[in-house]
Simulated scan of single mutants.
Amino acid sequence: FLERGPAEPPLDWQTRRRIALGSARGLSYLHDHCDPKIIHRDVKAANILLDEDFEAVVGDFGLAKLMDYKDTHVTTAVRGTIGHIAPEYLSTGKSSEKTDVFGYGIMLLELITGQRAFDLARLANDDDVMLLDWVKGLLKERRLEMLVDPDLQTNYIDVEVESLIQVALLCTQGSPTERPKMSEVVRMLEGDGLAERWDEWQKVEVSRQEVELVSHRNSEWIVDSTDNLHAVELSGPR
């Protein structure tokens, strides 16, 4: 849905909202209502197809895997699209429905920004800032205009953009166990449970930041006992 000719108008905000919900429902169906469940493994904007009514259809199952209920994951050579691949899949080769959830979260950012995931990092304009940290920062500062596709101009609803960004961040957490299931994503997009889930996530984030701050402060108290010794003392008898 990101590909359009120069004469084609950009997708309006309500259409993008419908795409977010429609693709979430499609992935939820693959994960929870197929027997065996299907892991798509390449969830991205380019693989969300639109019918004549602009309804979203999940397409391109070239990398999909059938998953036996006895298995908790599928181990294979890592395949997918740069920018969409979940960290645990990159590091271990283990994919699960939660790798699709990660890809879906990145796809939401594509939907909001109008940029491909591969190009999203350039928006941050800082080699030292990770894309998701940059998104978190803009959300915290409520600078949504930095994220929203400029082609939309001001024709979007702030609270809906904020909700989609929150869902995207919940879906792209580093730990797969902390990411919601796609069925939960569908409910959150329909207005059920996002506020509670987001509050829980924020509490965890605050705790993590406090632990990191304490660790940083403690490291400043570590003093090298050889700092004040002269060379002759360092080379003396042991």
Rank of each mutant, 00 (worst) to 15 (best):
P10C: 07
A20F: 03
G22K: 10
G22H: 06
G22P: 03
L27F: 08
H33F: 14
K37Y: 05
I39C: 05
N47K: 05
N47W: 02
I48Q: 05
G59S: 15
D60E: 05
D60F: 04
D60H: 06
A64R: 05
L66Y: 07
Y69K: 14
D71A: 13
D71W: 05
T72Q: 12
T75Y: 01
T75Q: 12
G80H: 06
G83F: 04
A86S: 14
E88P: 09
S91M: 14
E97Y: 08
E97T: 15
T99V: 13
T99Y: 01
T99N: 00
D100G: 12
I106R: 09
A121E: 13
A121Q: 13
D127W: 01
D127M: 08
D133R: 06
K140A: 05
E141S: 02
R142D: 09
E145T: 08
L147T: 01
L147M: 13
V148W: 02
Q153Y: 01
I157H: 07
V159I: 05
E160Y: 02
E162S: 09
A168P: 07
A168D: 04
E178L: 15
S183Q: 11
V186K: 10
R187S: 15
L189Y: 06
E190I: 08
G191R: 03
G193S: 08
A195T: 14
Q202Y: 01
E205R: 07
V206H: 09
E210V: 14
L213S: 14
S215H: 10
R217L: 15
S219N: 09
V223E: 11
D224V: 10
V232I: 14
L234W: 02
P237N: 06
